[in-house]
Amino acid sequence: MRLVAPQFQPRTVSAFAIAVFLALTAFANPAGATSPSQTPPRASVMTVATQDRVDTRISGLHTRLQITAAQEELWQKVARVMRDNAGTMDSLRQARASNVNSMSAVDDLKSYGQIADAHADGIRKLTPAFQALYDSMSDVQKKNADLIFQTDHRHSAKKG
Rank of each mutant, 00 (worst) to 15 (best):
D108W: 08
M46P: 00
K110I: 05
G122W: 04
K125H: 11
F16A: 08
Q9K: 14
Q66M: 11
V106W: 06
S156L: 11
A26N: 14
R42T: 10
M46L: 13
L61F: 06
D90K: 02
L74G: 00
E72T: 09
A19L: 10
V4A: 14
M1R: 10
D52G: 03
Q38V: 02
M1D: 11
A79L: 06
S136C: 08
S156H: 11
W75R: 05
E72Y: 05
A118N: 04
A5C: 06
S111H: 02
A28H: 03
T34H: 05
P6T: 06
E73S: 15
L22W: 03
G113A: 12
S14L: 07
F8Y: 11
L133K: 03
K143A: 15
V100P: 00
A49W: 03
L61A: 11
L61C: 02
V13S: 06
A105Q: 14
K110S: 09
A132T: 09
L3M: 12
N29W: 07
A105C: 04
E73R: 14
D52C: 00
P41C: 05
G32D: 07
A118L: 04
L24G: 09
F21G: 15
V140S: 14
M137R: 01
A118E: 04
P41F: 01
H153T: 08
A26L: 14
S14A: 11
A132Q: 13
A145I: 02
A17E: 15
A105V: 13
K77F: 03
R124G: 07
Q76C: 01
A79I: 03
L22H: 08
Q7I: 14
T68I: 03
F149T: 03
P41I: 07
Q38K: 09
P30A: 07
T56I: 00
A79T: 01
D55P: 00
A105N: 12
R57E: 12
L133E: 05
L3F: 13
S37F: 08
A157W: 01
R11H: 12
V54T: 11
K158P: 00
Q9T: 09
D52F: 02
A145E: 02
N101E: 14
D84R: 13
I148T: 04
T68Y: 04
T68S: 15
P41N: 08
L65F: 15
I115G: 13
S37M: 07
Q150V: 05
Y134M: 05
I58D: 06
T88D: 10
I148K: 04
Q51D: 12
G32A: 08
F21K: 09
F27I: 08
M103T: 04
P30Y: 09
S138Q: 08
A31W: 09
